[in-house]
């Protein structure tokens, strides 16, 4: 984790390892801890960490990992998850609850119920998905506080 403390914001940067499922979610646990130290309310901590956790798991399952940046701004926390994975062919479909392309292997690990993206949208105040097939996906989310 790299922490940059600029005058206007604190930024946490993580490299999300895509090869090792057992470490998936580590960055989100760390972010929750940091937000607690910064004195954020339980509601804000929970929303940020759940949205980021879902995204982090998605990056490991679908995109061989990527990077996660969390920026604590003046009135919002921004989470940027970027990967160089296969991209999302149909965002509308991916946003439907229950739609998943995860393998049975992933389901056996307790994920892949098709709730990740809808859940990320539910817990955040803003979510944008930029995706290109064969190039990668960047998801930007914001939780106001």
């Amino acid at each position: 984790m790299r922490v940059t403390n600029m005058s206007e914001a604190i930024r946490f940067h993580f490299d999300v390892d895509g090869e090792n499922f057992s470490s998936a979610g580590e960055a989100s646990v760390m972010v929750k801890k940091k937000l607690r130290q910064l004195g954020f309310s339980p509601d804000v901590m929970r929303r940020v960490s759940i949205a980021m956790y879902e995204g982090e798991i998605n990056m490991v399952i679908h995109a061989h990992g990527g990077t996660a940046d969390v920026i604590v701004g003046e009135d919002a926390i921004e989470i940027i998850l970027a990967d160089k994975g296969p991209g999302i062919p149909d965002i509308n479909k991916a946003m439907q609850e229950g739609f998943s392309t995860a393998s049975d292997n992933i389901r056996a690990l307790g994920f892949g119920a098709g709730m990740g993206l809808p859940n990320m949208k539910k817990y955040t105040d803003y979510m944008q998905i930029d995706t290109e097939i064969g190039v990668g996906t960047t998801i930007t989310m914001r939780v106001n506080y």
């Binding site: 057992s22 979610g25 989100s28 798991i57 307790g110 994920f111 892949g112 119920a113 709730m115 859940n119």
Partner: peptide, 28 residues
């Protein structure tokens, strides 16, 4: 996935799944 999507304010998770994500999910 379902715990993350449907659980609200439950204090205890019972599960037969074994991996670190169980603990991380509970923590989230």
């Amino acid at each position: 996935s379902d715990v993350l999507a449907y659980v609200k304010d439950q204090g205890v998770l019972l599960t037969g799944l074994i991996n670190p994500q169980v603990i991380r999910t509970a923590s989230m």
